[in-house]
């Protein structure tokens, strides 16, 4: 038994050393990637670390990443814009990100793409995607709180540096190898048009209002105000019909933004887009052609909103 315990102790010591080494390597890679142009794998690190010096930062999930073209907004508004959205992330991750970002370096504007039912209670997938906040576990207190909510044992698992980088190895390698050249899209990822257009469907979303999300939203609004950032909410088009506007979570969202005086540019069920399935890749995402059409109607509204805010 003595032999077993000696070997176990040696293995444990080697593991701690290897784990620490892995952490250092990833830290070095992350540091290097901060100097690379913004892309999927470094967008949050750049955003949270104050690496984006643009006037407007676009935050959201895949719809934001595929729908907002920074260069077109820049040309019209005369502002510098970057799209820091990330596929698959949810409201919680984005809210914590904005909260942390404005404390580091506050842009003039944050354009936050959401869906109408913003305050729908988080599902397991959204909780799981809080992994995107893991890199800020030590530096941002709110990130730490939310990462720990992934599971009761999360705070113990976060003692491992390798665990903190779980699932990020290939992405980092990919960006290290291919992401040095600036593609000029500033974070926008055009979705290729597909031959098959989505079919119109009606969805019935569940009503599950989460007051905690509303409270977090208020926190985010307050922190952006303190930092002098103008927060603008946007909802881009979707090819479907649903009960989204009959839900409590949607009603609460509109009531709250109204009371907090936060502008909402809502194109969710815009009739023009509902007549053009060829502008969509699937029922939730516009293709590149659809994104350009969307920018045509969105930018004038954004311009008006910014002008009104200045008055």
């Amino acid at each position: 038994m003595k032999k077993f315990f000696i070997y176990a102790a040696i293995l444990l010591a080697l593991l701690v050393a290897a784990d620490y080494g892995v952490g250092r390597v990833f830290k070095a890679i992350d540091g290097k990637l901060l100097s690379y142009p913004i892309d999927y794998h470094n967008s949050y690190e750049k955003t949270m670390g104050g690496g984006n010096s643009e006037d407007m930062i676009i935050i959201g999930h895949s719809r934001a990443r595929h729908h907002y073209i920074p260069t077109l907004i820049e040309d019209s508004l005369g502002l510098s814009v970057v799209n820091a959205a990330k596929d698959g992330t949810g409201f919680l991750t984005q809210a914590v990100l904005i909260h942390g970002m404005v404390q580091q370096k506050a842009p003039k504007y944050i354009l936050w793409e959401v869906r109408p039912a913003v305050f729908l209670k988080a599902d397991n997938r959204e909780i799981d995607r809080l992994t995107d906040l893991m890199p800020f576990y030590d530096t941002d207190s709110l990130s730490r709180v939310w990462v720990q909510r992934r599971s009761p044992s999360e705070k113990y698992k976060m003692l491992s540096w390798a665990y903190r980088n779980n699932g990020r190895f290939w992405g980092r390698m990919e960006q290290m190898l291919t992401g040095k050249e600036d593609n000029g899209r500033k974070g926008y990822a055009p979705a290729k048009p597909s031959k098959k257009h989505p079919e119109m469907k009606r969805y019935e979303y569940e009503d599950n209002y989460d007051p905690e999300r509303a409270a977090l939203f208020v926190d985010v609004v307050n922190s952006t105000r303190r930092a002098g950032t103008q927060l603008i909410m946007a909802i881009s088009p979707q090819y479907e019909t649903s009960n989204a506007y009959e839900l409590e979570e949607t009603r609460q969202f509109y009531a709250l933004t109204d009371s907090l005086n936060i502008p909402v540019l809502d194109f969710f069920y815009n009739p023009e887009f509902l007549d053009h399935p060829e502008w969509f890749k699937d029922h939730t995402h516009l293709n590149s052609s659809g994104a350009e059409h969307y920018m045509e109607v969105f930018i004038p509204e954004l311009k008006r909103t910014i002008a009104n805010a200045k008055q």
């Binding site: 070997y7 293995l11 080697l14 290897a18 784990d19 892995v22 390798a162 779980n166 699932g167 190895f169």
Partner: peptide, 22 residues
């Protein structure tokens, strides 16, 4: 022993880095 130890460490670090945990 050292080959076994290194293999164990590589396996455990791989699980932590590449595993779909929980």
């Amino acid at each position: 022993v050292w080959v076994r130890m290194v293999t164990y460490v590589v396996l455990i670090i791989s699980i932590l880095l590449f595993g779909v945990l929980d």
